[in-house]
Structures are given as structure tokens and as C-alpha cells.
């Protein structure tokens, strides 16, 4: 935490740990004047924003470098992560903590090659298939949305909380819910790790207070549990039993063995044993062998 306090740059591993503990993700809007953004971001971070994304669709990225650098410094001082939207070039020029890409932007692999291993890469997903395909990419989080119709992206079709849940069920990386959210709890309860907002903070009369409220609501919500499942990070909804987990994976109870934290779970207990945070779960079956 020393780096956070002194406003320094987090290392590759620390950055991901910080990401894992994040709940509130604030994205800048296109309506606020550029010169108002430093104060807005400072207020959002002071209120509890864990991540800030500079998203401006109208200005060319080259015009945003100085602003991005100043927002980056402000985020670092406040212990927040700073990413930019769409432009790997801007991320590199401003030494941002990462970049957020859409399905139509630079491919994730290409972005990773250019950025190196430290910066975070996030990807927007709008369908369960996109969320699943994203798991094979060298990225650090996925966004799922738009949960609700939003004036920020008028061309997008709202996909509801189902998309958040579908992404949570397959994701090995944190899931960020986005799209018309003005409350912290609902998305977290649907399986998201973070709530991303644009207007709920940027258009609020008091952005700091709005961030504070959203952060508090997200924190208080019952989140899904992160577990290790067959060596991979996976999420499990609150109260999910091992049998429900198997069913979700499309696995029948017969012919598999389930081990939790090194202990075999008898078949008759699968329906009653609930998956706990941090559980190391192994599901094995028979394969050919000599």
C-alpha cells in the first residue's frame, strides 16, 4: 500500500490485486467540458471510485494526452486506477494503468503486445458468447452491458442483468456491470465485481457524494464468491450448492468426484454443501489410462 499512499505506480501484480478489490468504476462523460474533468475525477476518487476511465468520443486522442496525464496523477494520489477508453496510443502516451476496449476496437492480443504485461486491459461484452470468448484473451476484466438503455450509448440494445450473470458464470476475471446504473447493489448481486457508472457520478449535483453512496451500496451488497475451480478462477453466486455448481457446468453427479479444499465430498452431501469464498474445488472424472 506504500505506493498508493505516495501516489506511485503499482506493479503488475499489485495493480491486479487492487483491481480485484475494486467495486466502483467511474467513466467520464462526453458532455462535461474537458477542463471540468480534473475536478470531477478528483471528487469521484475522493468519494471512493476505485477505477476511473477517461472516455471522450469527440476529441482526437492526441488532444487528450495532457489531460490524461493529469487525471492519472490525480488517480494515483487518491489510490485509484486510471484507464483510458479505446486508444492504446493514448494509454502509452499518458502512461495510464490500462485501456478499455470495445468489441470493435484494437484486438486485445495486439493491445497486449503493444502495452506489455503491466497495463490492465478491459473488454466490453454484450452477449454470453462474447463473455466466454473473452476468457481466452490476455485481458484483466470484462464489462457486461448495457444493463439498461442509456443515453451514453443510444445505439446499444439493453441486455439486462442476465448478461451480467451470464458473464459472471463463465469469467475467470472480474466482471464490471455497466449501462444506466444508478445504484450499487443490484449489479453486484447479479454477479458483477464492480459497478460502472457515467451519469450517476458525472451528472450528479455532488459527484463525490454520489460516488460515496454508490461505493457504499456496492460494498454492502452480497457479492458472488470467487473460488478456484479445477485450477481456474471462477465465481459462484451466494448460497450455491455443489450440486447447483455441477448443474451449472452441465455435469451429472454420477461419474464425477468432487473435492473441496482437499476433502472428498460424499455424493449425498453435494446437494447440501454450499460453496464458500476462496474454496478450492476440483471436479474430476474418469478418462482413458493404462
Amino acid at each position: 500500500m506504500g505506493d498508493l499512499e505516495t501516489g506511485g505506480q503499482l506493479g503488475t501484480e499489485q495493480l491486479r490485486i487492487r483491481l480485484g478489490a475494486s467495486r466502483l468504476y467511474v467513466v467520464t462523460d462526453d458532455l462535461s467540458p474537458l477542463e471540468s474533468l480534473p475536478a470531477l475525477v478528483e471528487a469521484a476518487v475522493a468519494g471512493g471510485a476505485d477505477l476511473v476511465q477517461l472516455r471522450r468520443k469527440r476529441e482526437p486522442w492526441a488532444d487528450l494526452v495532457d489531460l490524461a496525464r493529469s487525471l492519472r496523477d490525480s488517480c494515483r494520489r487518491g489510490g485509484a486506477i486510471f484507464v483510458v477508453n479505446d486508444h492504446v496510443d493514448l494509454a502509452l502516451a499518458a502512461d495510464a494503468d490500462g485501456v478499455h476496449l470495445g468489441q470493435g476496437d484494437a484486438p486485445v492480443r495486439e493491445a497486449r503486445e503493444r502495452l506489455g504485461e503491466r497495463p490492465l486491459i478491459g473488454l466490453s461484452t454484450h452477449t454470453p458468447e462474447q463473455a466466454l470468448r473473452a476468457q481466452l484473451l490476455p485481458l484483466d476484466y470484462i464489462a457486461a452491458g448495457p444493463v439498461r438503455a442509456t443515453p451514453t450509448k443510444p445505439e446499444s440494445v439493453e441486455v439486462g442483468f442476465q448478461q451480467v450473470t451470464a458473464a459472471a458464470q463463465v469469467s475467470r476475471v472480474p466482471v464490471v456491470a455497466i449501462g444506466g446504473l444508478d445504484e450499487g447493489a443490484s449489479a453486484i448481486e447479479a454477479g458483477a465485481d464492480m459497478v460502472a457508472v457515467v451519469r450517476a457520478v458525472c451528472a450528479a449535483p455532488d459527484p463525490r457524494q454520489a460516488a460515496q453512496r454508490l461505493r457504499r451500496e456496492a460494498e454492502a451488497a452480497t457479492s458472488w464468491r470467487w473460488i478456484r475451480l479445477n485450477g481456474e478462477s471462477r465465481k459462484s453466486p451466494p448460497g450455491e450448492t455443489l450440486l447447483e455448481l455441477l448443474a451449472r457446468l452441465g455435469v451429472e453427479r454420477s461419474g464425477v468426484a468432487v473435492e473441496v479444499d482437499g476433502r472428498i465430498v460424499p455424493r449425498e452431501h453435494l446437494a447440501t454443501e454450499v460453496v464458500c469464498e476462496g474454496a478450492v474445488v476440483e471436479v474430476v472424472h474418469f478418462v482413458g489410462g493404462g
Binding site: 479445477n230 481456474e232 452441465g250 474430476v284 472424472h285 474418469f286 478418462v287 482413458g288 489410462g289 493404462g290
Partner: peptide, 18 residues
Amino acid sequence: ITLAVRRLHLDGDRRSEL
């Protein structure tokens, strides 16, 4: 017949030689 015990694939192809 002999068999081995291995992790189940979480996603994708689950077909087995058995």
C-alpha cells in the same frame, strides 16, 4: 479395465474416449 482420474474440462468439448 483400467482408467485414470483427471480434471473435467469446464468449458468446451467434454467428449471422452470412454
